[in-house]
Simulated assay, not measured.
Amino acid sequence: MGSLFEELESREAAARVRVEELESQIAELTARLEAERETWSRLRVTRETVAEVVAEMSSSDGASAVELPVAAGDQPVRVVGAIMVPHWREGLSVHVLPDVYRDIVEVVADASTPMQAKQIVPRIGLPAVTAKIEGTRGKLKRLVERGWLTEDQPGLFALAHRATVESGEEAER
């Protein structure tokens, strides 16, 4: 019977080694997980803080310049303002929008039917190339998110509030 006990002891020792290896891997993964959670948390807080600062800057000054900190020996980076598209609300005219967004809303308002980005691009003075069309599509989507335009069918944009542009035209007079 001695060989049976020796075999069991051998198997037990092998199982113990495997358990210890797995525990070591778990400890290593737990440490990596905690480090990544810390990085994620710092990035989230940084993004939220920057968003708050940019929002405060744009509401108080519009287009002030900000110098970003850089590593020693690098040239400072200047960021001029942030384009902010406010959420539409009653009484707000297109004049609160940055120029390119205002141009887009005015072009869409002048159209009798919903428009595609590729139709809008030449009307706002840009070349009808893929990069400009995609950039304009992003702006159109932002205007939809903020309530200035609607997108009832994919890729077709229309004015959400007629009074928005009309009150803007009255303000120009």
Rank of each mutant, 00 (worst) to 15 (best):
Y101T: 01
T46A: 07
I124M: 11
L43N: 06
E12V: 08
A51R: 11
S167L: 15
I83S: 13
G155C: 03
A160D: 06
M57N: 08
S167I: 15
V77M: 06
G155D: 03
T150H: 03
A31I: 08
H87T: 01
L156C: 04
A72N: 08
R42T: 12
Q119C: 03
E12P: 05
P127S: 13
L33W: 10
E12D: 15
F5W: 15
A27H: 10
R16V: 13
T130V: 08
L97A: 04
T30Q: 11
E172Y: 12
A14G: 09
V121C: 01
S59W: 13
V85R: 05
R42C: 05
K118I: 00
A72Q: 09
L33F: 11
A31C: 06
E90H: 10
G138Y: 07
R37T: 09
G81Y: 03
T164K: 01
P122Q: 03
E169K: 12
V165P: 01
L149D: 02
V45I: 14
D61F: 15
R32K: 12
S64P: 04
D103Y: 03
L126M: 09
A13F: 12
D103W: 08
R173H: 13
D103T: 06
V105E: 00
V77I: 12
K118Q: 05
A65N: 10
A13I: 05
H95A: 08
L97N: 02
P86Y: 04
T130Q: 11
E34M: 08
S167E: 14
R78A: 10
E145A: 10
L156T: 06
A35H: 09
P98K: 02
D110L: 07
L22I: 06
A14S: 12
A35E: 11
V54M: 10
A35Q: 08
I26N: 06
R44W: 11
A171P: 02
E67W: 07
E7Y: 14
P69M: 08
E28W: 09
V79C: 02
V144T: 09
W88R: 03
V53W: 12
T150R: 08
R18C: 02
S112K: 07
R162M: 07
G155F: 00
K118R: 06
E56H: 15
L143M: 02
H87A: 13
Q153L: 11
D61R: 14
R42W: 09
G147E: 01
E90F: 14
V54H: 06
G147V: 04
T46I: 14
S58Y: 10
L140V: 00
V96I: 03
V96R: 05
R47D: 04
P127A: 10
V121P: 02
R137N: 01
G73H: 02
I133V: 13
V105G: 01
T130M: 05
R142H: 07
E56Q: 13
E90G: 06
M115N: 00
L126C: 03
L140Q: 02
R44H: 12
Q25L: 10
V108G: 01
D110M: 06
G91M: 14
A109N: 04
T113N: 14
P86Q: 04
D152M: 11
E172W: 10
I83T: 11
